[in-house]
Simulated scan of single mutants.
Amino acid sequence: MAEVYRRVKSMELERAIALHRSSQNAIKGHAVSIGNKADAILSRHRHDGHAFIETESGDVDQYVTLNDERGLKAAMSIEFGRKGRENDDGKTVGEMEGLAVLRRAAGIYGEAP
């Protein structure tokens, strides 16, 4: 009967596989692809150029983020939109539909370019 090892050189099997060079190359390639698509989506809607797409490396994973260093939850508003508020005239102002930049680039929401 076959024996299944749960550890490789004192490392859990899943982590050893994730850290393998070919796995890391595939993960990085996928992150770069998502980052490029997200950048293309964002560039079509950029008004004043504060927000940008950033790809970072973690211990095992790669991260693609929508960064807007101005704060004020601007990146969250770009991705998910925001509700408006009613002004003194009873009109709704400041409402914005989200662009779903990261979700579209990753193929989670709608079509990627």
Rank of each mutant, 00 (worst) to 15 (best):
G49P: 05
G58I: 00
V60G: 05
A38L: 01
H47A: 03
I41E: 03
V32T: 14
R44H: 04
S57L: 07
S33A: 15
G58T: 11
F52L: 00
G35A: 15
G35M: 14
D39P: 01
T55I: 12
S57E: 13
K37F: 10
S33T: 10
E56M: 03
A40V: 11
S43T: 12
D48E: 08
E54M: 13
D59E: 07
N36W: 02
G58F: 00
A40I: 05
H45D: 12
H47K: 10
L42M: 07
D61N: 14
E56Q: 15
I34F: 12
S57K: 07
G35N: 10
A38P: 13
T55Q: 09
S33E: 15
F52M: 05
S43Q: 13
K37T: 08
A31T: 10
D48Q: 10
A31M: 04
Q62V: 00
R44L: 08
K37Y: 08
E54S: 10
V60S: 04
A31G: 14
A40S: 14
A38T: 01
D48T: 12
H47R: 12
D61T: 15
A51K: 01
Q62H: 00
H50I: 06
I53W: 08
D61V: 01
G35C: 12
D61S: 15
D48I: 03
S43L: 07
S33V: 05
E54H: 04
L42S: 09
S57T: 03
H50W: 02
D39Y: 08
F52I: 11
Q62C: 02
N36E: 14
A38V: 06
D61G: 02
E54Q: 13
R46E: 15
F52Y: 14
H45Y: 12
I41M: 01
E54P: 04
S33M: 11
H47S: 06
I53R: 08
Q62R: 14
L42F: 11
D48H: 09
I53H: 07
A38G: 09
I34P: 03
A31F: 01
S33P: 02
I41C: 06
E56I: 00
H50L: 02
V32A: 15
A40H: 03
L42Q: 14
K37A: 15
D48F: 05
A38R: 04
E54K: 09
A38E: 09
I41D: 06
D61P: 04
D59S: 02
I41P: 14
D39Q: 11
L42A: 01
H50V: 03
T55R: 10
I34Q: 04
E54A: 06
A38S: 08
E56C: 03
G49L: 05
H47I: 10
A31L: 11
D39M: 05
I53C: 07
G49H: 05
S43A: 14
I53N: 06
H45E: 15
D61W: 00
R44Y: 03
G35T: 09
Q62S: 02
D48M: 06
G58W: 00
E54F: 04
S57R: 13
I41V: 05
V60T: 12
G58M: 00
R46P: 06
R44A: 11
D48P: 06
I41Q: 12
S33W: 14
A38D: 07
E54T: 08
A31N: 05
Q62K: 03
S43F: 08
K37Q: 13
S57C: 00
R46A: 13
L42G: 04
H45P: 06
G35R: 13
A51L: 04
R46F: 10
